[in-house]
Every structure is written in structure tokens, then in C-alpha cells.
Amino acid sequence: MKEIQVYTDGSCLGNPGPGGWAALLQYQQKRKLISGAEPDTTNNRMELTAVIRALGLLKQACRIELYTDSKYVMDGATQWMINWKQKNWMKTKSEPVKNVDLWQSLDQAMQPHQIQWYWVKGHSGHPENELVDDEARKQAEKIKS
């Protein structure tokens, strides 16, 4: 099973507002940076999109070290999602999970892989996190212009 490192970040200029996402996938000495943008979105949606798009590139099951500065994404994927699924994607009887479309996509994208999640403090000098942060922000700024 291939061992891959994935670094993700999302950015939003206003919340909601124009947003960008970026992910860096690293396998051995090979690196691939992917990114994109949406005109009217939220930071949380961009954080989720970065992870979904990165996992979507993988053509086979992998062992993944996934680095994010979003506790929302990491805690959602590692702690909250199991309960949301048991409750049919509801937080309470009357409150549906926000961004359920993306959480369901993330759930599907995660299935074939063994993922070890790591939280990285944003803007703390972590080189790969800074790279995806810069790219996500650039993507959001392109849309704003």
C-alpha cells in the first residue's frame, strides 16, 4: 500500500465570500499541488473541499498522513461523523449537519484509505501548510478580482 502525505487548506475572503482551496500530495519525492476556487462559499466548505479533492485524485487505497489546520474537518472526520451517520446526518432531532453534501462526499472519499489525521497550527511556519495556505488564498483572490 502506497504511503502518501497530504496537506490541505481552505481560505475565504469574507465568510461567506469568494473562497479557495489547495492540497499538496506527496509520494516519495514526487509532489503535486492542486487548487481551485468558488465565488460564494465559506471557509469550512473550502477546508472540506481541499480534503475531498485530494483524496479524489488517488486511484487506489493508500496509507495517508493527512495534515490540516482545520479542527472542524479533523474532528468531524475522526469523531463526529460516526454519530451523524447513525442519526441520518442530523446533529439533533431538528438540526441537520451543516455542509452535509460535503461531509457525505468526504465519507465516501475516505472509505478505501487508512488515514492518520494530524492537526497543524495555521500560520505557524509549517512549510507545507504555509504553501497550501498561500495557494488557497491566491485562488480566493483570483475570484474576488
Score class of each variant (00 low, 15 high):
88 N>M: 10
82 I>F: 15
47 E>R: 11
80 W>I: 05
13 L>G: 06
81 M>I: 10
7 Y>M: 06
90 M>T: 00
16 P>I: 03
124 S>P: 09
10 G>F: 08
144 K>S: 11
107 D>L: 07
115 I>Y: 02
138 K>C: 11
122 G>S: 13
54 A>N: 01
128 E>M: 12
73 V>C: 09
24 L>G: 02
108 Q>A: 15
1 M>F: 05
87 K>C: 11
96 P>D: 03
106 L>P: 00
74 M>N: 07
131 L>T: 10
95 E>G: 09
133 D>W: 06
118 Y>A: 11
37 A>C: 12
118 Y>D: 08
117 W>Q: 06
35 S>H: 11
131 L>C: 11
64 I>W: 01
33 L>M: 12
136 A>G: 06
115 I>P: 00
25 L>W: 00
23 A>W: 00
99 N>P: 00
83 N>Y: 13
11 S>E: 05
69 D>L: 08
45 R>N: 06
143 I>R: 07
60 Q>V: 13
62 C>W: 03
130 E>S: 07
83 N>V: 12
124 S>H: 12
91 K>T: 10
72 Y>K: 06
94 S>C: 09
34 I>D: 01
136 A>Q: 05
60 Q>D: 13
65 E>C: 14
65 E>R: 15
58 L>Y: 04
20 G>R: 02
56 G>E: 03
132 V>F: 02
16 P>S: 09
82 I>N: 15
135 E>V: 15
125 G>T: 02
130 E>H: 05
23 A>Q: 02
145 S>K: 15
98 K>Y: 08
12 C>Q: 10
32 K>I: 14
52 I>W: 00
123 H>V: 04
48 L>F: 05
92 T>F: 00
47 E>L: 13
51 V>M: 07
25 L>F: 07
121 K>V: 12
28 Q>G: 11
16 P>V: 05
120 V>L: 08
135 E>P: 06
81 M>S: 09
144 K>C: 07
70 S>V: 08
